[in-house]
């Protein structure tokens, strides 16, 4: 019974990580890839770690700590990369809708050139 539960959790988690991999491979632009690479694997690793916490004797605390670390750091890391990529030149960012940030960045550049 416990084995089945562990198996289902592990398969579901691995499936989510695989979906993230396919998304990173398939999506056409950088930010869409980042959406795939940050959300699904976080939940996937959480599921795998819960399974590990059930199945492995004596390792529950460390596994939960590892899951918590990834949970806390994944959005911050995504934010860093996204922010840096927006500022960097030579990265093709394709947007279908409005871009509220462009205006702000141009204001910043004007302020910098006036100094």
């Amino acid at each position: 019974m416990v084995d089945v539960l562990v198996g289902v959790l592990v398969i579901a988690g691995s499936m989510l990580i695989l979906l993230a991999g396919i998304g990173v491979l398939r999506f056409a632009d950088l930010y869409a890839r980042m959406h795939a690479a940050t959300k699904a694997p976080t939940v996937g690793i959480a599921l795998v770690c819960i399974a590990g916490a059930i199945a492995i004797d004596g390792g529950t605390d460390k596994i939960l700590l590892a899951a918590a670390i990834i949970f806390v750091t994944a959005p911050s890391a995504a934010h860093f990369v996204g922010r840096a990529a927006y500022r960097a030149e030579g990265i093709d960012i394709h947007l279908d809708g409005p871009d509220d940030l462009r205006e702000l960045m141009e204001d910043d550049e004007d302020a910098a050139s006036n100094d």
Binding site: S14, I17, G44, I45, V48, G52, I63, A66
Partner: peptide
């Protein structure tokens, strides 16, 4: 992240 999952598995 995949590596961490693989280690746990």
């Amino acid at each position: 992240v995949t590596a961490v999952a693989a280690i746990v598995v």
